[in-house]
Design a protein around this nucleic acid. Structure first.
Lengths: 315, 315
DNA sequence: CTGTCCTGGACAAAAGATTGACAAGACGGC
DNA sequence: GCCGTCTTGTCAATCTTTTGTCCAGGACAG
């Protein structure tokens, strides 16, 4: 454990630390007052200044507490010990999970919580396990709408506000993608189903929403062709043509508002022809409602609405 | 299962034990009250504190019970006896099957050609088929080095010179990723293997090379943790620490030359400490040879060299 | 002047402990 | 196969400890 940089220069006020660790202000102070969990330096007027190391420690403490340890027990442990503990807990938990026990009850919210915890602690295997449990316990729509969507949304929020590291988001994305890929493209599909092109417009980097759309479409009897994220209008049109698709679905998530996007959408309508059905959904769709209306794209408010919307086309 | 150190320091509250063993709180208490199956120590305020040994015992008890024994019968057995029991049951259940492996000689170059054709015509299923054929026909290393790498390189070239559309590249990436993901993270891996962090530096968007590295490392007895592409040095360091990794592998592909990259690499060396083993490979690595030398990263010229290089660390 | 931060006290919610009870399934005798 | 008895997981009620949250009143920073 040689030179660790993140201590010397940067010192953060309590507000920043709170948002970076996800711990409320009061908790930070309470932990300091009651257990001296971290003892930040002070300005000459008494304000707390936390080092990067403090932040890291607090993060680790939070994980430990979330895993069920008591703050009074772990508050005095070193950062290394905390991380060791975390490792141990996970390994141990994983082993016990392998001997699957009977399933009590299946609350979607619980999967979200457990999934998020797994993301936080970078525990890939655990995340996979949670998803798989949810998959067998719930029906498809509920799995997507009540577990995956809330989970994604929560990860997105925390990521934007800095509570989650980039690594966490990456690992989560990778797991989700693998998980959804199985739903989107099951091995053998002699396809007389209508084709649906699924993608994301240029500038839109987040692909998980699109994958959810593809998987849902598949459940409704379509054959989705997922083209990957961040495609310019011309490319999308090429895909539509190549596959002889009957409709196109776009997911707009982030950035929420993007002037380039409007132009892209207009282009898209131009390329695919004026009658081709275009469906659009995602959190960023509302922000571009006008353009969507102008190009006569159909807005799909939620995954549950996708099936009926598609049915209108297939007829 | 060899190395297991019941660190006598750690004492766990009942909540953690419950989650570690999968036994409900009530059961833990009931077993203690009725059979003294384990007798945890107490804090001065009466809360239970379980040792690692207790946890181990409880886990064994649970296995025995799940296998149909009665708790009242096994509660008083020693840990050793419980484990013997478990072994016995497992042995009687073990029915392993042998999978015959045929290996018709085929020319790797042919798979490359067919694969590329599939990419060109956007035929996802065909691409998957080609990869799967190659997978059974060739050994791992040859599959990676003689099929995937050339295929990727060719796609990359055509993409850069505009012969291939973005869509093609996207679809290919998606298929490859799904294919490789299966190699990188097989279902359950009780991991006493050394950990290797695999990722891509900030600015480097192409992740397929990294996935190849992860899969190869796995074949050499490591436990790769793939963190996703395009990570800043600080994030990578966090991952290294979090996973207690023994080494780090970076894939540098595109952009081939990137001034920011040098700074990133230096940062990275700084964060992980001066002795930590860093391996670097990929087509863009040569262009940064000086920096790599400066930070004492080890250059790995091809996938075939990765195994030996890693072996040097594991020793 | 407004928004952020400090201290210390108070309070509410969560997590645990204890005791007792109950119901479903296992077991054993006939 | 039937019936009483045992086992055992689960639940409820109640109390204590621990921990998160809120508030008041004041100070500081920008």
């Amino acid at each position: 454990m040689a030179a660790k940089k993140p201590s010397s220069v940067a010192r953060h006020p309590i507000g920043v630390v709170s948002s970076r660790t996800g711990l409320p202000l009061d908790v930070l102070r309470a932990w300091e007052r009651r257990y001296a969990a971290v003892v930040p330096t002070r300005t000459d007027t008494g304000r707390r200044l936390y080092s990067d190391l403090d932040v890291e420690r607090l993060r680790a403490l939070r994980v430990a507490v979330d895993q069920g340890r008591r703050i009074s027990d772990v508050a005095s442990l070193s950062l290394a010990k905390l991380q060791a503990l975390q490792q141990e807990d996970e390994a141990s938990r994983a082993r016990s999970r392998r001997i699957a026990r009977r399933r009590p009850k299946a609350e979607p919210a619980e999967y979200v919580t457990r999934g998020f915890a797994a993301v936080e602690s970078l525990d890939r295997d655990q995340l996979v396990r949670v998803l798989e449990e949810a998959e067998v316990a719930l029906d498809r729509l509920s799995l997507y709408a009540d577990v995956l969507v809330p989970l994604l949304r929560r990860i997105g929020e925390c990521w934007r506000e800095g509570t989650l590291r980039i690594v966490n988001e990456h690992v989560a994305t990778d797991v989700f993608r693998g998980f959804l890929a199985r739903h989107v493209a099951p091995p053998d599909a002699p396809t007389d189903r209508p084709r649906l092109i699924v993608t994301t417009a240029a500038g839109q980097l987040h692909e998980l929403g699109a994958l959810l759309v593809a998987a849902t479409a598949r459940d409704h009897g379509w054959e989705p062709a997922y083209l990957g994220p961040n495609l310019p209008a011309e490319e999308i049109a090429a895909g539509v043509e190549r596959y002889g698709a009957r409709a196109l679905a776009l997911s707009l998530v982030y950035p929420v508002v993007d002037p380039r996007l409007d132009a892209e959408l207009e282009n898209l309508r131009h390329y695919v022809g004026s009658e081709f059905p275009i469906f659009v959904g995602g959190d960023a769709a509302r922000a571009h409602a006008e353009t969507l209306k102008a190009i006569r794209a159909r807005y799909v408010a939620s995954l549950a609405d996708l099936g009926p919307a598609l049915a209108g086309v297939a007829a």
